[in-house]
Design a protein around this nucleic acid. Structure first.
Lengths: 254, 254
DNA sequence: ATGGCTGTTCGCACCTCTCAAACGCTTGAG
DNA sequence: CTCAAGCGTTTGAGAGGTGCGAACAGCCAT
């Protein structure tokens, strides 16, 4: 356990973060509702809401509170600080257009994959992912591509923390199998998702690195019906690795 | 009673929000740096960072902390909940294309204008605004358009809270003058910004209302050199009010 | 009018947050 | 190679804040 969870934390802050998370799920909530949901007294919640409201992190409309528009600012700032962002969007738009499928870019944080951008080609499937969405890494081509370029101890940490949750019968739930898969990905240069998260959904992903450091990964996703044979095993891999290369090269000049 | 600021607040939460705001300004900071900036002990900040990090609101890279990619998720959710968003973007793209200038949409929160979306026509000026950016209302055409459709007491509250800061010699800094201006805007149906915030920048704005309730405002901005005569006083107002109307109508079916 | 539901306020007891100091660690200078 | 200075981290102990619960005020439907 390298993640020192033993650190002393601030419970009052924990409560506030719980409130924010609750407001993220529901679109607006009242004091009593929040209080009962989080098992805190109404007075306590009231104090927290007052603090959040004064700092404009929350808006009070009548008796219900909502997350404020400040989060647009925060999201925007965070995105603007990703230097590769513009390079990625440009290349993914090209990629999705030329293959007609769904192209995505993700980075990693706290041992999870975070979707940053997606670009839909004309035949692209619908995907539930949206920017900022966090997902376990072991069942995504994007995630495995990134894991493959991390030191083994780091991967073990991640497994310890998040486990290897199973979604379909193809999900890798055994650590040793995962390490073998990562080894194969490293040799190959790209990763597959053979319906490991969602039945019928297949993907190919390639890592994006700069100076041997992993910065993220890009992927192409589509239905199992189209993703098979040479198209799946040869064409798409070659397209995705080419795009990853373009991103790596272009990102050096920004 | 309305929002009285006398409410008891939670100081520990205030500290955390100050930290977030600090990280919003700087791109990454260390414990000592944050501690000295906020006049707190290192130990205190450490505890707060541990809490924020465990909740994935912050990322620790080596010894520096940054805002995490979670804020992308938060920003996205907040934006998705604005029902008019899609209608607005579509119409503003049309508007900016047909007049060649910069078209923007803003809403109001905590007595301030918050930019939500902007669309640049081919001759559009550069603007420092970006989604989520908050600005005083009295010196913006967008802001005045919204103020004009608020009850007088609400406007007085806002003046009390934020004052009427002066930026140029045209900025309205006197409450009575402002109320007269708002009256004129109400009669006219649209608002001007005659270089009241930035020298050389002029705008026209129209409110967007549904069921007599103000939801936001749209504007066109451009250089004083182009924004004059009939174009500024007649053509642009007619375009902007037409667009506002389109948005109001279309937003009823969503 | 009445009860039930909000959000709000307040006093009090307890716990938690904050501070300061000391620790281990890395870095750079001598 | 040594040392000092900087960093983040941990800990104890104390003051102060925080949370609770009860009581209050307002709203709405019955």
């Amino acid at each position: 356990m390298a993640t020192h969870d033993g650190s002393r934390t601030v419970e009052a802050v924990q409560t506030t973060l719980d409130i924010i998370e609750l407001l993220l799920e529901r679109d607006g909530a009242g004091i009593t509702e929040i209080a009962s949901e989080l098992d805190r007294s109404k007075g306590t919640i009231h104090g927290h809401m007052a603090t959040l409201s004064q700092n404009e992190f929350v808006v009070k409309e009548g008796d219900t509170y909502r997350l404020s528009l400040r989060y647009l600012e925060l999201g925007e700032k965070v995105r603007d600080r990703l230097q590769i962002y513009d390079v990625v969007t440009e290349e993914l738009d090209d990629l999705s257009a030329s293959c007609g499928e769904l192209a995505q870019f993700a980075m990693t944080e706290h041992g999870r994959a975070v979707y940053i951008y997606k670009s839909a080609g004309e035949n692209a499937i619908q995907s539930a992912s949206s920017p900022g969405k966090r997902e376990y890494m072991h069942c995504l081509s994007l995630g495995k591509a990134m894991l493959a370029h991390m030191p083994r101890e780091r991967v073990e940490e991640i497994i310890d923390r998040h486990g290897l949750v199973g979604y379909t019968e193809n999900t890798i739930t055994d650590p040793e199998t995962l390490f073998e898969e990562l080894e194969a990905i490293r040799e190959r240069g790209y990763a597959f998702d053979r319906e490991e998260k969602i039945e019928g959904l297949r993907c190919v992903a390639a890592p994006v690195t700069t100076k041997d450091e992993i910065v993220g990964a890009i992927s192409i996703s589509g239905p199992a019906s189209r993703f098979e044979g040479d198209f799946y095993e040869e064409e798409l891999p070659s397209m995705i690795t080419r795009s990853a290369n373009v991103i790596e090269i272009n990102s050096q000049f920004s």
